[in-house]
């Protein structure tokens, strides 16, 4: 009978779907059964007791208490059974495992933005490791959206002004479709995302080099993205204004003096060292307040920063 399930439901790709699918199929068969049961009774009655003449005499039966109790109690038992089955699945889908990887999801007209624990972000593509629980902490920047992954059998509204959560453990490698299922205007039906359930090797590559969008991005653009998203912009301007730290404008190739009066040329290695070990050389006149970005930036992102700063002449 698997063909019926495969016809009605998308292929399951997460843990915890077995219970939902089991109940779904139970009710499906119940529906099929009662449709043919009722239909069969009607068909039989029409065949057997079709009017022959207007003078047909029919028995005067007003009720049958025993029969009526039976057809009240049996459905009651069946629906209570369904209630508890559904409730069990709902509770399981509700309780998030403690070791879940946490990802922040922002819905806005009409894109999904994902933020990973390392601070990196992506639009509409979410990479997750296979067989590890993942928790989504979701909110909206404008109207209500809803995050729906059919292959995982999960869905929850994404609401402005509060957080909602979802969790799943992907068990099938590959790409899984995400839809917005709360109507949100013109782009509602284009507000799609993809979840990449990565094997350990793929996930390693993702952690090291970012997702495909990032890997394909030219270094300079990647650097700009890092500058905007990783907090560089808070202290370092790109228009020559003095901030908490020196402006990046025109800095590349020039010489700077540190507090001890020693001269340094701003080149690739200088930038790399300043990102990873910022306290080693502090430009004269500035406080040693910059934190290290060791482990927070990928190798290619550091290269991107160098290219970006180089471009700011």
């Amino acid at each position: 009978m698997n063909w019926f399930r495969d016809f009605l439901l998308p292929k399951s790709a997460a843990s915890n779907t077995g219970d939902v699918d089991g109940l779904f199929m139970f009710i499906s068969w119940l529906t099929v059964f009662f449709f043919f049961f009722n239909g069969g009774l009607i068909w039989y009655a029409v065949r057997k007791w079709r009017r022959r003449s207007n003078n047909d005499i029919t028995p005067h039966i007003t009720h049958d208490t025993k029969l009526e109790v039976i057809w009240s109690v049996i459905p009651l038992i069946v629906v209570m059974f369904i209630f508890f089955w559904g409730f069990r699945g709902y509770v399981r889908a509700w309780v998030v495992p403690n070791d879940a990887l946490e990802i922040v999801v922002t819905g806005k007209k009409w894109v999904w933005e994902f933020e990973y624990p390392d601070g990196s972000r992506s639009l509409n593509d979410l990479h997750v490791p296979l067989n590890k629980p993942v928790k989504l902490v979701m909110h909206s920047e404008d109207v209500i959206h809803s995050f729906f992954v059919p292959a995982f059998r999960i869905k929850r509204d994404v609401i402005p002004g509060r957080y909602t959560e979802l969790w799943f453990t992907a068990t099938e490698p590959g790409i899984h479709q995400v839809y917005c299922t709360e109507y949100c205007g013109r782009g509602h039906s284009d507000m799609l995302a993809r979840i990449f359930a990565d094997t350990p090797e793929q996930y390693e590559v993702f952690l090291r080099e970012g997702d495909e969008q990032v890997r394909k991005m030219p270094l300079k653009e990647l650097g700009k993205l890092v500058y905007e998203n990783k907090g560089c912009a808070t202290c370092h301007s790109i228009d020559g204004t003095r901030g908490q730290g020196p402006s990046f404008k025109g800095i590349y190739g020039h010489e700077l003096k540190d507090a001890a009066g020693k001269t340094h040329t701003v080149d690739a290695n200088y930038i790399r060292d300043s990102i990873l070990n910022p306290q080693a050389v502090v430009v004269a006149g500035y406080e040693p307040i910059m934190p290290t970005f060791q482990g927070l930036l990928r190798e290619r992102e550091i290269l991107g920063m160098i290219e970006y700063i180089k471009s700011l002449q």
Binding site: F24, T31, S146
Partner: peptide, 28 residues
């Protein structure tokens, strides 16, 4: 008779939506 058949389908498919775990998948 049409009503009886169509209401039977309409009513029974309500069970999918009344039940919590299946409604999560089918909602909207």
């Amino acid at each position: 008779i049409n009503f009886l058949l169509i209401f039977t389908i309409g009513g029974l498919t309500g069970l999918f939506l009344a039940s919590l775990s299946t409604d999560v998948h089918l909602h909207d």
